[in-house]
Design a protein around this nucleic acid. Structure first.
Lengths: 351, 351
DNA sequence: AAAAGCTTTTAGATCGATCTAAATGGAAAG
DNA sequence: CTTTCCATTTAGATCGATCTAAAAGCTTTT
């Protein structure tokens, strides 16, 4: 490995050009794979680049060319495996376009979101994929669009005028309710959690609509704690209500996991005398016992869709906003059973 | 909000300077919070910046100042919640220093790792935090150091000459073995998974040493599948051996979760007639039933440590390599029990 | 042989900040 | 009143690429 002179700070395009006996401009064309340069010249320049160990300087290029090959991604929470999978899908899509992801965590706080968004602009990202923090105003997104910053909202939709990638949560809820109803359940609870945002509302409204359209009471909506360890201990909330539910739909799989433990603690047998449905179908669902029936929202796919939307928008900032809404799929496993086989569960004051 | 002229592409420092009746140089000093500028001037410039909606251009600054305020982070896998938590810790640390994270996924493949590392260099990151892909050569890291790229290895250590943040896996293994031994277990299996790397070897050797130092047979090491859904079905592997184990230590919590399901399928009662210990103590451990006893490696903390190491190294590239090795903590919950109460488990061909 | 038409190459300006070294202005010292 | 000193301010070069518009070499046509 021939290191010419290690002292000299950095190999620049000019060094390469001199080595190959061409001008800076020609060397630049070679890098950008322009068809203008001759075959022999191209080979000579590439050879020189290799010999000198040249590394392209994006920073310099961006300054002139006004493109940074950089995409900002803002998520409310990294610890949640759901967002980790989403991020994984986004990263793969962005990466395959030869761009890189600048990551930031908003903590689901609008002030922090303002802050990281500013930082992204300072770093000159070509576009941003954001899962908006709860409480984000449409004006916030509009202003970004105003500033000509290509933008995609993911999972939560704040504005109709901005690209959106998500899943059809309402349809997912209907699948869950229909399935439980087909098993004979009539008193179904909905366990919810976390801050209020569009995805939250879509799920709640989806639940209400699905229940009402079957003539069932949609009012049994129970809020559980955010910490997974505490959810189990909150299972009793389900039974504090006037009527006793025979099944519960969970806002996400984390709740399902927690409640499953809490129901176990109360001596209920999930899948036998009580039914449980999760939402999102993260990979752990397969490993629970009984295996968790869950509505799959495919976060990796949503992430890939968001990346696609952004990449499509970059060349053409004025195209109308698009929405890519993923179908949900009900994965039936073992955590639900027909109501008939467990009549001992329903009476108000038995056992 | 007074938009002077929306057509003009971008508000630059020169615009700000003109508005405030100072030179570009002075405006630049204000931005960088230099103590050289007078109070009244500073106020005037800041006012002008606000009025014009000025956004700092990192790209331009970096070109001249040779600092990008950017850190590369390379992980082998984003879907795994363990890495997601690690990333969360790194991001928080880097963010609090006013820098941003450029994220890449190596897929645990050295070729991809080469590729993303090159990309990071092109983007001019100030440093890189990497969890090296399995099979990474020390020479790879040394070359990066040679190129004056500040570097921190996290979770897996390839080279002694490069900063490292991780956990004391061997000690964690000893804690697990000691605990099981104190409960009377003598035939203990170790369920492992995934590619071979330093963290893998540390855990295996830690297991072997701990077993041997207690006069126990350390050879019962069983490889299980990588997909969580398949782990449960692989539980039988534990009992295909010559001797029947009464306890199993898992390489990570995902395996523990999977095996727990598989053991359940076989009619074994974890915590009563079979003992199970996880490793890493991700948040779900609390929600399993029985609650999973696990060796905590605190990935968020490791991430924070890695960020700290890198931030400390930036100002001083020649300081000797440091190692920050986190203590592990055994979180005792319910998945282990004394061997005495379950004598019916051991006989080779019982009911 | 000159003109026209290609293809390939290039000089020099430019992007928006930072850096260096020097200029400016006012107060204190001689 | 000049000189020195200190605190501020500034002009102009610079970082490493890209862009524009034109030049230089080739054929091919007239």
């Amino acid at each position: 490995m021939p290191f010419e002179d290690k002292k000299k700070s950095r190999v620049t395009l000019l060094d390469v050009a001199r080595r190959a006996n061409v001008s800076r401009a020609t060397a630049s064309l070679v890098i950008r794979k322009s068809p203008l340069v001759g075959t022999e010249t191209r080979a000579r320049v590439e050879e020189a680049m290799r010999e000198l160990g040249y590394v392209y300087n994006m920073g310099a290029a961006r300054l002139r060319a006004e493109r940074s090959h950089t995409v900002g991604v803002i998520v409310p929470n990294l610890t949640n495996p759901f967002f980790a999978e989403l991020l994984s899908g986004i990263e793969a899509g962005i990466d395959s376009a030869g761009m890189v992801v600048i990551l930031a965590n908003s903590g689901d706080l609008v002030e922090r979101q303002d802050m990281v968004m500013r930082r992204m602009r300072e770093h000159g990202v070509d576009g941003v994929i954001v899962c908006p923090a709860a409480g984000t105003e449409p004006a916030f997104l509009h202003q970004l669009a105003e500033w000509d910053l290509p933008l995609v909202q993911v999972l939560r939709q704040i504005s109709e005028e901005v690209d959106y990638a998500g899943a059809d949560y309402a349809a997912g809820m209907r699948q869950a309710v229909d399935y439980l109803a087909s098993l004979g359940h009539r008193t179904i609870a909905f366990a919810v959690q976390g801050p209020i945002h569009s995805a939250y509302r879509e799920r709640v409204e989806g639940f209400r609509d699905a229940m009402q359209s079957r003539g069932l009471d949609p009012s049994m909506i129970v809020r559980v704690p955010n910490q997974i360890g505490e959810i189990a201990d909150a299972a009793h909330l389900l039974f504090d209500e006037h009527e006793q539910p025979t099944a519960v739909i969970c806002f996400n799989d984390v709740i399902a996991l927690g409640l499953s433990a809490g129901l176990y603690d109360r001596g209920l047998k999930v899948g036998e005398n009580f039914s449980l449905i999760g939402f999102d179908d993260v990979t752990d669902a397969e490993a629970m016992r009984p295996r968790l029936t869950s509505v799959s929202t495919a976060p990796v796919t949503i992430g890939a869709n968001a990346a696609r939307l952004l990449l499509d928008r970059l060349p053409d900032p004025i195209r109308p906003a698009r929405r890519v809404v993923n179908e949900t799929v009900l994965h039936i496993r073992q955590s639900c059973g027909p109501i008939a086989i467990s009549p001992d569960n329903n009476p108000p004051a038995s056992g």
